[in-house]
Simulated assay, not measured.
Amino acid sequence: MEIRYQIRRPIRLEAHLTVEGFTVLLGESGAGKSTLLKALAGLLPAEGTPFSGLPPERRPVGYLPQDLALFPHLRAWENVAFPLKDPPREARRKALLLLERVGLLEHAEKRPHQLSGGQRQRVALARALARGAELLLLDEPTSNLDALTRTQVLAELVDLIRKEGLPTLAVSHDPDLVGFADRLAVLLEGRIVQEGPTPEVLARPAESRVARLLGYANVFPVEVGEGGVWAGGVFLRLPLPPWARPGARAFLAVRAEEVLVVRPDRPKPQENTLQGTLETLYPEGLGHRGRFQGPLTLEILLPRHVQERLRLRPGQPLEVVLKPRYLHLMPR
């Protein structure tokens, strides 16, 4: 589904993107992500396609705001049946069938406060299906989920959405949601600056701001040379895109987990090796995050098995290598 919308208030925003499967629109807080969803749902004035000019009640849209907008005094099946125009008995029958489709039939008589965050999301999804939605809109779907179960709940929700074949646009500032996306778009300063299949956008961010938003911890200015770039007084070799001419200024990005520590028991790499000091190192989940200080200042993220083998500690000398295939060059 192609979306082309122009919004003038409460902020100016121009959005052109394609929604296929589970599509995530990523942007910083205040960028206008929720505003776009409200405009698509008909809750804010906007111009464009699809659905422009239709009142909210006539739009084939399932809109799930952050609080999901479930009626607290109604049971699960009653929330699902609410948009149905059938007689009460038929509406209940259809609502129960929809709850069965989302795996919640046994919870049909429960009220929202008796359900988990993931179960409430599925009730809201069933209600959207009851409306005959052609497009599902999710506003910050990770915001009300428990950190311990978030990944499982999201995986189940996205799987249900895919089984229903319902195009979905989820907006968030949470990079973790990107891992579930079939397609990814990035919103900056009131416009879509990049979109495409998720692996392509993740591997080739179009500019430095996109790279940072996508989790590239190391982004720094460079100057293009012959067959590589100059950065911090050292030359780094990497394949250059056609636009990168010698003397051009650019940004180079590399993920923290792709800054590799040179192991003393293995042959030393012949290129892109930097010598310096491990300035800091601290646990992060099952890994260790640190800061390398040398010709360049780099964040590094070590898997647990690497740290267990090397037993690195702050203050010690360290060599790291920046492999060309992990380096990404962007215009400046």
Rank of each mutant, 00 (worst) to 15 (best):
E2N: 15
P10R: 09
E20R: 15
G21W: 09
V24P: 00
G42E: 01
G48Y: 09
P55N: 00
R58L: 12
R59M: 06
A69N: 07
L74H: 08
W77P: 08
R92K: 15
A95F: 04
H107D: 11
K110H: 14
L115P: 02
S116T: 09
G117Q: 10
R120Y: 10
Q121K: 13
A126Q: 06
A126E: 03
L136Y: 11
L137I: 07
S143V: 12
N144S: 14
L157R: 14
A170N: 07
A181D: 01
A181N: 02
R183I: 05
G190T: 01
V193S: 02
G196D: 03
V201Q: 02
A203I: 09
R204W: 13
P205F: 00
E207Y: 11
A211R: 04
Y216W: 08
N218F: 05
V219C: 01
F220M: 05
V224Q: 05
G227C: 01
P239L: 07
L252A: 06
V254G: 02
A256Y: 12
E257A: 13
V259E: 03
V262T: 09
R263I: 10
P283F: 11
H288W: 15
G290L: 01
G290Y: 10
L298A: 04
R313T: 13
L322S: 01
H328V: 14
M330T: 05
